[in-house]
């Protein structure tokens, strides 16, 4: 009987948490839409833009650079043996813009910014600062969550673009400068294979990743349990949940985009 009661209690808790998450997300989206045209709201968003962009750009650039370097080093011998070294640009840039760029930039953001957002809001929660907003007749979701959410949503795409760019340059450096692949054919093949569609799919993914990171990180901080342990646990949960959601979104967007492309333009062979 106690086991049944335990399962029941856990189910009720899970349903309540699910409802709370969607209520939180709904309120956040409603305030985001309402505040977008307001100058005063953008004054709250701009410092968050600085925090998210400034804190993450160096990490994102380093990530992009090493992804490009590793892809080029790994691909060169294989493509050379098949006399396809001119196609190196296709492999490096397509992998970057469609998959590794958005996913790795998203993961780095989840770790670098997501953790910081959860810790900041979690600390505000345990020191009653969130209640202080409420008792002054201000909605903490509007004042604290919406600026952070918008910064994550809008800047992840831009940061992913920089990650892609850095990876592309570093991949070109290994292929053309170090391995002496001819520069003209390298870029010609790349331009032939990569379409705006591919870049667009990558950027749409990163936009969704940014939204997911912002929502999950703020939610976890907002409802973290009291004490230092509660904040620490919320940070860990926030990163793990963001990482898993990034992978899930990646799979579904990739599947959907591939199906849509086939339906519109047919199958496109890369070689």
């Amino acid at each position: 009987m106690s086991m049944v009661a335990g399962v029941g209690a856990k189910t009720v808790q899970a349903v309540l948490a699910f409802g709370r998450f969607w209520s939180f997300g709904g309120s956040m989206l409603m305030w985001s839409a309402a505040d977008l045209p307001r100058y005063r709201a953008w004054r709250r968003v701009m410092p968050q833009f600085y925090e998210v962009g400034n804190r993450t750009l160096p990490v994102i650039l380093v990530t992009g650079m090493f992804v490009g370097l590793v892809l080029a080093v790994q691909a060169y011998d294989q493509l050379l043996s098949a006399r396809l070294e001119e196609h190196m640009g296709v492999l490096i840039n397509l992998t970057l813009v469609k998959e590794l760029g958005p996913v790795l930039a998203g993961v780095m953001l989840a770790g670098r910014i997501g953790g910081a957002l959860t810790a900041e809001l979690g600390t505000m929660n345990v020191t009653e600062q969130l209640d202080a907003y409420r008792v002054m007749g201000a909605d903490p979701i509007r004042h604290l969550v919406v600026p952070r959410f918008l910064a994550c949503l809008l800047l992840t795409t831009l940061l992913t673009f920089f990650c892609d760019l850095m990876g592309s340059v570093s991949g070109w450096f290994i292929a053309v400068i170090v391995k002496h692949v001819p520069n003209g054919p390298y870029w010609y093949r790349t331009a032939e294979a990569i379409e705006f569609w591919d870049v667009g799919v990558g950027l749409v993914k990163s936009f969704l990743f940014g939204g997911a990171i912002g929502t999950i990180s703020c939610y976890k901080g907002f409802y973290c349990k009291p004490g230092a342990e509660g904040v620490g646990k919320a940070c860990t949960e926030s990163f793990v949940a963001s990482f898993i959601v990034i992978l899930i979104i990646d799979f579904f967007v990739a599947t959907f985009a591939m199906g849509l492309y086939k339906a519109l333009y047919g199958f496109k062979p890369l070689l």
Binding site: M124, E128, M136
Partner: peptide
């Protein structure tokens, strides 16, 4: 008006 135990000033 509400005075919180730890002040709850915004850092």
């Amino acid at each position: 008006g509400f005075l919180f135990q730890l002040g709850a000033l915004f850092d």
